[in-house]
Amino acid sequence: MEMTSPVIRIENLSKYYGRHRGVEEVSFEVDRGEIFGYLGPNGAGKTTTIRIMLGFLHSYGGDVNIFDRNIKKDLLTILSRTGYLPGELSLYGNLKVAEFLEYFSKLNNRNGGKLIKDLLERFGCEPDKKISSLSTGNKQKVGIIQAVMNDPDLVILDEPTRGLDPLMRQEFYALLRELKNKGRTILLSSHVLTEVEKVCDSAAIIREGKIVAVEDIHSLKIKSYKILEIKCRETLDRKKIKPLKNITGLEFTGNMMKCHLHGDIDPLLKALGKNYITDIESFSPGLEDVFIKFYGKKNVE
């Protein structure tokens, strides 16, 4: 039964903080072996959803089932199969890294042993260091290790790459892919579209407490774009540049060109022809910009 039914099934979940909205009528499902992105700007309701899933908050209405069990009835059984990395990570500063991991492993009624050792090596963590002496990035690594060290069936990660350097970020993405290959399910909450695109199979997009869309990652990639600022030596002549399908939002200011690039950059470089390019800068758009561009305000109001 459990093999075919979704690992996470959330139906019409609502939560209010007094008069303030937390989440409204949130519904989505996550299948076994899926890396599911939970995407939304800060304050959209991602953390509220996760906190209800873990029993920290009581919902106002709706239902949360994980492993075919209801969180109100079988929370401890669900938690015994779940790893969690909070968005605002705090660890016990008075413990050493190894002590901390061993303690949390014991609280999970497990003995991490070799897996913990391997993960410590993989992420370059020193087991004998006191947690209070670690940098933010290193604390985040310890947080990630504790979330996966007992080989949970479900891993819930709230903004997991906060504070990680680019190299460690790649290592973390590789770890997620390995977990997926082992059939583990991952819920990754993020406000970074490119991160979700990189590792997730599908994603729910939440804005102002409501689910705006649940999309597979291919559809998201189509919606995603990069903002390019291209500087040339001479003033650019708009008429001389061939229009391209994957370029939108074209703006010219003297020798500077600004546009939204969807897909590969090569056609654009070729279209610029003989212009001497002195600089190219690329930015990821804010999630809010992507929402407004593709989902529009109307969808959530």
Partner: peptide, 14 residues
């Protein structure tokens, strides 16, 4: 206040 309650309660302990 230390921010550690989340991690503690995410473990299977009532």
């Amino acid at each position: 206040e230390d921010g550690t309650l989340d991690l503690l309660l995410s473990k299977p302990i009532s």
